[in-house]
Protein backbone atom coordinates (compact mmCIF):
# COMPACT_ATOMS: atom_id res chain seq x y z
CA UNK A 1 0.00 0.00 0.00
CA UNK A 2 1.22 3.49 -0.83
CA UNK A 3 2.02 5.98 1.94
CA UNK A 4 -1.10 7.74 3.19
CA UNK A 5 -1.55 11.39 2.14
CA UNK A 6 -0.86 13.47 5.25
CA UNK A 7 -0.82 16.92 3.73
CA UNK A 8 -1.32 18.71 0.45
CA UNK A 9 -0.03 22.09 -0.73
CA UNK A 10 -2.75 24.63 -1.61
CA UNK A 11 -1.26 28.11 -2.24
CA UNK A 12 -3.36 31.12 -1.31
CA UNK A 13 -3.03 34.59 -2.79
CA UNK A 14 -4.42 37.90 -1.73
CA UNK A 15 -4.79 40.95 -3.95
CA UNK A 16 -6.14 44.19 -2.60
CA UNK A 17 -7.55 47.33 -4.16
CA UNK A 18 -6.01 49.88 -1.84
CA UNK A 19 -8.07 52.96 -0.95
CA UNK A 20 -5.59 55.44 0.48
CA UNK A 21 -8.04 58.09 1.68
CA UNK A 22 -7.58 61.85 1.31
CA UNK A 23 -4.35 62.44 3.23
CA UNK A 24 -2.39 59.54 1.81
CA UNK A 25 -3.73 60.30 -1.72
CA UNK A 26 -2.28 63.79 -1.55
CA UNK A 27 0.98 62.36 -0.23
CA UNK A 28 1.21 59.84 -3.07
CA UNK A 29 0.33 62.48 -5.70
CA UNK A 30 3.04 64.68 -4.18
CA UNK A 31 5.58 61.89 -4.52
CA UNK A 32 4.68 61.63 -8.22
CA UNK A 33 5.88 65.24 -8.62
CA UNK A 34 9.03 64.88 -6.56
CA UNK A 35 7.58 66.42 -3.44
CA UNK A 36 7.20 64.92 0.06
CA UNK A 37 4.09 66.18 1.82
CA UNK A 38 3.34 65.76 5.50
CA UNK A 39 0.56 67.02 7.71
CA UNK A 40 1.04 68.92 10.95
CA UNK A 41 -0.97 68.08 14.07
CA UNK A 42 -2.76 71.24 15.30
CA UNK A 43 -2.16 70.17 18.94
CA UNK A 44 1.33 68.65 19.26
CA UNK A 45 2.62 70.32 16.05
CA UNK A 46 4.40 67.16 14.98
CA UNK A 47 4.46 66.52 11.24
CA UNK A 48 3.26 63.13 10.02
CA UNK A 49 5.06 61.70 6.96
CA UNK A 50 3.34 59.89 5.32
CA UNK A 51 0.19 61.59 6.64
CA UNK A 52 -2.79 59.47 7.65
CA UNK A 53 -5.19 62.34 8.21
CA UNK A 54 -5.06 62.34 11.99
CA UNK A 55 -2.73 62.35 14.95
CA UNK A 56 -3.39 59.21 17.01
CA UNK A 57 -1.56 60.73 19.99
CA UNK A 58 -3.87 63.76 20.18
CA UNK A 59 -6.95 62.16 18.54
CA UNK A 60 -7.49 65.13 16.20
CA UNK A 61 -7.59 65.46 12.41
CA UNK A 62 -4.44 66.81 10.76
CA UNK A 63 -5.11 69.26 7.94
CA UNK A 64 -2.28 71.74 7.54
CA UNK A 65 -0.03 70.45 4.79
CA UNK A 66 3.72 70.85 5.12
CA UNK A 67 6.37 70.01 2.56
CA UNK A 68 9.34 68.31 4.16
CA UNK A 69 12.84 67.91 2.74
CA UNK A 70 14.14 64.74 1.17
CA UNK A 71 17.13 64.68 3.50
CA UNK A 72 17.09 63.14 6.94
CA UNK A 73 18.75 61.17 9.70
CA UNK A 74 19.02 57.41 10.24
CA UNK A 75 17.55 57.05 13.74
CA UNK A 76 17.97 53.27 13.93
CA UNK A 77 18.54 50.38 11.52
CA UNK A 78 19.06 46.68 11.02
CA UNK A 79 21.18 44.75 8.54
CA UNK A 80 18.78 42.18 7.10
CA UNK A 81 20.21 38.80 6.07
CA UNK A 82 16.94 36.87 5.95
CA UNK A 83 15.05 36.40 2.69
CA UNK A 84 11.36 37.27 2.59
CA UNK A 85 9.14 36.65 -0.40
CA UNK A 86 7.65 40.15 -0.65
CA UNK A 87 10.92 42.03 -0.32
CA UNK A 88 12.91 42.78 -3.42
CA UNK A 89 16.18 44.20 -2.09
CA UNK A 90 19.21 42.01 -2.58
CA UNK A 91 20.51 40.45 0.67
CA UNK A 92 22.09 41.66 2.84
CA UNK A 93 20.63 45.17 2.94
CA UNK A 94 20.40 47.97 5.49
CA UNK A 95 16.81 48.65 6.58
CA UNK A 96 16.68 52.09 8.15
CA UNK A 97 14.23 54.07 10.18
CA UNK A 98 14.69 57.53 8.66
CA UNK A 99 13.51 60.83 10.11
CA UNK A 100 13.19 63.38 7.30
CA UNK A 101 14.13 66.98 8.07
CA UNK A 102 10.90 68.66 9.14
CA UNK A 103 9.12 65.38 10.00
CA UNK A 104 8.00 64.36 13.48
CA UNK A 105 7.95 60.60 12.88
CA UNK A 106 10.38 58.28 11.07
CA UNK A 107 9.52 55.65 8.46
CA UNK A 108 11.24 52.55 7.09
CA UNK A 109 13.38 52.52 3.94
CA UNK A 110 16.83 51.32 2.91
CA UNK A 111 20.21 53.02 2.67
CA UNK A 112 22.62 52.13 -0.14
CA UNK A 113 26.00 53.33 -1.48
CA UNK A 114 27.66 52.74 1.88
CA UNK A 115 29.45 49.64 3.23
CA UNK A 116 27.06 47.83 5.60
CA UNK A 117 29.49 48.00 8.51
CA UNK A 118 29.46 51.80 8.27
CA UNK A 119 25.69 52.22 8.54
CA UNK A 120 25.07 53.92 11.87
CA UNK A 121 22.57 55.80 13.98
CA UNK A 122 22.84 59.51 13.23
CA UNK A 123 24.00 59.00 9.63
CA UNK A 124 22.75 61.83 7.41
CA UNK A 125 21.07 60.68 4.20
CA UNK A 126 19.17 62.00 1.21
CA UNK A 127 16.59 60.36 -1.04
CA UNK A 128 17.61 58.94 -4.40
CA UNK A 129 14.61 59.32 -6.67
CA UNK A 130 13.78 57.30 -9.76
CA UNK A 131 14.19 59.09 -13.11
CA UNK A 132 11.65 61.91 -13.57
CA UNK A 133 9.75 60.07 -16.30
CA UNK A 134 9.38 57.07 -13.99
CA UNK A 135 7.89 59.06 -11.04
CA UNK A 136 4.62 57.47 -9.90
CA UNK A 137 2.24 57.80 -6.93
CA UNK A 138 4.06 55.25 -4.80
CA UNK A 139 6.83 55.51 -2.25
CA UNK A 140 8.83 53.26 -4.56
CA UNK A 141 9.53 56.50 -6.47
CA UNK A 142 12.19 56.95 -3.81
CA UNK A 143 14.57 54.12 -4.77
CA UNK A 144 16.59 54.32 -1.60
CA UNK A 145 18.47 56.72 0.63
CA UNK A 146 22.18 57.40 0.23
CA UNK A 147 24.68 59.17 2.52
CA UNK A 148 24.44 62.96 2.10
CA UNK A 149 28.01 63.59 3.19
CA UNK A 150 26.98 65.90 6.05
CA UNK A 151 28.39 65.32 9.56
CA UNK A 152 26.39 62.86 11.70
CA UNK A 153 23.43 64.20 13.66
CA UNK A 154 24.02 64.23 17.43
CA UNK A 155 22.24 61.49 19.46
CA UNK A 156 20.21 64.02 21.48
CA UNK A 157 18.67 65.37 18.27
CA UNK A 158 16.97 62.06 17.39
CA UNK A 159 17.03 60.03 20.62
CA UNK A 160 13.24 60.12 21.03
CA UNK A 161 12.77 58.61 17.56
CA UNK A 162 15.09 55.63 17.90
Amino acid sequence: MADPVKSIVTPIRLEYDYTPGRATSRFLRGIARHCILGQECPKCHKVYVPPRGSCPACAVPTEREVEVRDTGTVVTFSIIRVPSENIHFELPYAAISVLLDGAGIPFFHVVQDIPLDQVRMGLRVRARWVATEALAPTIASIECFVPSGEPDAPWESFREHS
Binding site: P20, V82, S84, F89, F108, I139, S162
Partner: peptide, 24 residues
Protein backbone atom coordinates in the same frame (compact mmCIF):
# COMPACT_ATOMS: atom_id res chain seq x y z
CA UNK B 1 5.71 41.12 5.29
CA UNK B 2 2.96 43.33 3.95
CA UNK B 3 3.54 45.83 1.16
CA UNK B 4 1.40 48.94 0.74
CA UNK B 5 1.98 51.83 -1.69
CA UNK B 6 2.68 54.35 1.08
CA UNK B 7 5.42 52.23 2.62
CA UNK B 8 8.43 50.31 1.38
CA UNK B 9 8.55 46.57 2.11
CA UNK B 10 11.85 46.30 3.99
CA UNK B 11 10.69 44.73 7.27
CA UNK B 12 11.53 41.04 6.88
CA UNK B 13 9.19 39.36 9.34
CA UNK B 14 8.98 40.15 13.05
CA UNK B 15 12.78 40.20 13.41
CA UNK B 16 13.02 42.94 10.81
CA UNK B 17 10.57 45.06 12.77
CA UNK B 18 12.04 44.46 16.22
CA UNK B 19 15.79 44.53 15.44
CA UNK B 20 15.90 48.35 15.06
CA UNK B 21 14.13 48.65 18.43
CA UNK B 22 16.69 46.35 20.03
CA UNK B 23 19.46 48.53 18.61
CA UNK B 24 17.72 51.60 20.04
Amino acid sequence: SISAPFGVAVVAGAGGFFAPLVRG
